[in-house]
Design a protein around this nucleic acid. Structure first.
Length: 526
RNA sequence: GCCCCUGUAGUUCAAUGGAUAGAACAGAGACCUCCGGAGUCUCAGAUGUAGGUUCGAUUCCUACCAGGGGCACCA
């Protein structure tokens, strides 16, 4: 991966410059290499000179000059320059681009894979909607983002386990279902409740499992999400894990009694107030289940626990971090991701949803109307901390204009050209000499875009922001459309044709890998 | 009252503290003898307000203004 390579090269250069006494001794900081906005500023750039100038006692310009001079000797670059205010700009040599292109063609579906995770085990819990009814649009966001994050982390070299936590025991769930089945105030309405009533289902816990099986699971399949496990809260009780967790906390001295209830002194561990574990009526709270569940996950050997929560749960973070610390684990191993709420807009007005009134748009309805590819892309585009405005009219009427088609269209075009050229999945054997025929602006620019996939995977594996991949996919598709528009692939010049077909094949590979990560289909025809 | 998130173009969104703030849709215009026009290329258009931190702020800090979401022996 180029960005890592360049970072390493800078580090090596600094060390050798220090050895040669061209630079004084100092501790080498974390070096950041970024992609400049402007092409004229190079393919990559670094502010390392500015960063180390503080501790070195030389002017940044001087330092940058020395580093650039040294790095100019490296073959990977065509040029290493210095620009105001002391950025070091790296221009890749075309030779580097061609060899990287070859690598894509060799690696195929493995292109973009990293060993960043070193096989560490990650538990990714998402959706986990209460089994009281069908999934609604609010569940979509965390669902799709969780699924894609799982894909990306796997690509980055983590061992990923996807989990859905089923609150099948909680008082609230049981109470709501009981009221719903009996048609009482405070219950939910909807066809599925009617159906349960007709089937004479009385037990709320049975109802919960039926809803999970008949409503939620089929929808999840429709969303093209796969879970490795549905974890039942009731199992924690059946196996006495809640008792064990409570006893553990007691032994650690975190538990006290007040007004007939058992409290967990979470304030000792950074929470705003203490929390109840056992209510005065003897019932355990969800929080106790969650602590037992946390313990259970660590016991299963996960290095990191990632959760997707809606914004309404933000207050829960301190609590779960406190529990983590009380259990004796480092809080860095628990990573809660908060996604802001989804607001539904129709005809310019917000649509208020109510589960109680049976008034909400289900995920099934949404996917039936716009298709799973459009739905996935729509929810993937935004960063988690933005409120997501879901415009129903746009999704319904303008699906033709949806950017996901722009991306898929690029793939369809590629397939079409390859078909015409009668090239199947087989490798185009293209020599370095032939690849050197690719020197048009659009060709080189496309190659550079292809090479960014591993960087995107790395970035997401570090900050979990999956929307990066959606934006990358658009950028990649644009790169191909521009190239396609400007230059003919099939031509009389058979050597050039071969080189361009190699580029097209490589684009196909990277586009396919990107779409796979997003869980969006790559159609040969549209 | 306290806590969390957000204020960027007419609209919906981008931009690990970096260089001339990017797209898409909507608007104005151009490109079909040509591998799929669901495409390409032009033009026009934006950082809520006031301070601070520093070589450099859309990004970090403070105050204010505006929107959303939380503050249970629910989760």
């Amino acid at each position: 991966m180029l960005r890592i390579t360049i970072t390493d090269l800078i580090k090596k250069t600094l060390i050798s410059l220090q050895k040669e006494k061209k630079l004084p001794c100092f501790k080498i900081p974390d070096i950041s290499v970024q992609k400049p906005v402007l092409q004229s500023h190079g393919d990559y750039s670094s502010n390392v000179a500015l960063k180390i100038a503080r501790g070195v006692g030389k002017s940044p310009a001087e330092i940058a000059k020395v580093i650039a001079q040294e790095m100019n000797k490296l073959e990977i670059f065509q040029e290493v320059g210095v620009a105001e205010p002391c950025f070091i700009n790296f221009f890749l040599s075309n030779k580097t681009l061609y060899s990287q292109l070859k690598e894509i063609l060799q690696k195929k579906e493995a292109f973009g894979s990293l060993e960043l995770g070193q096989g560490k085990k990650v538990n990714l819990e998402f959706i986990s909607a209460n089994p009281t009814g069908p999934l609604h649009i609010g569940n979509c966001r965390g669902g799709f983002c969780g699924d894609v994050l799982a894909n990306v982390l796997k690509k980055a070299g983590y061992e990923v386990f996807r989990e859905y936590y089923v609150n099948d025991r909680g008082v609230q769930v049981r109470e709501v279902l009981r009221r719903s089945l009996e048609g009482k105030e405070g219950g939910y309405k909807g066809a599925y409740i009617e159906d349960l009533r007709k089937r004479k289902i009385k037990d709320p816990e049975v109802a919960a499992h039926i809803i999970l099986k008949e409503q939620i699971k089929p929808t999840i399949e429709k969303m093209k999400i796969k879970f490795d496990c549905y974890f039942f809260e009731s199992d924690l009780y059946r196996k006495k894990e809640t008792d064990k967790a409570l006893n553990f906390l007691k032994k650690q001295g975190f538990v006290y009694e007040k007004e007939g209830a058992l409290w967990f002194r979470t304030t000792d561990l950074g929470d705003d107030k203490d929390r109840v574990l056992i209510k005065s009526d003897g019932q355990a709270t969800y929080f106790l289940s969650d602590i037992a569940y946390l313990k259970n996950k660590f016991k299963r050997g996960f290095d990191y626990l990632i959760f997707f929560w809606g914004a309404e749960h933000h207050g829960y973070i301190k609590r779960i971090k406190a529990a983590t610390k009380a259990l004796g684990f480092s809080e860095e191993r628990v990573i809660p991701l908060i996604v802001q709420l989804v607001k539904l807009v129709e005809k310019g007005k917000e649509v208020k949803m109510s589960k109680r009134a049976g008034k909400y748009i289900t995920v099934d309805e949404l996917i039936n109307e716009v298709g799973v590819d459009v739905a996935r892309f729509f929810f993937l585009q935004r960063s988690y901390d933005k409120h997501l405005l879901f415009d129903l009219d746009l999704a319904r009427e303008q699906s033709q204009k949806n950017p996901v088609y722009y991306i898929q269209y690029a793939f369809a075009r590629i397939s079409s050209v390859l078909k015409k050229a009668q090239i199947k999945e087989t490798q185009v054997k293209c020599s370095q000499k032939e690849l050197e025929l690719l020197k048009e602006k659009e060709e080189l620019s496309l190659i550079k875009k292809l090479l960014r996939l591993p960087e995107i995977v790395e970035d997401i594996a570090c900050d979990y922001q999956v929307h990066r991949i959606a934006h990358y996919a658009l950028d990649l598709a644009e790169g191909f459309h521009c190239f396609y528009q400007k230059h003919r692939i099939l031509s009389e010049d058979k050597r050039l044709e071969k080189a361009r077909l190699a580029l097209v094949l490589a684009t196909r590979i990277v586009l396919k890998n990107t779409l796979d990560l997003m869980g969006i289909s790559a159609p040969e025809r549209m």
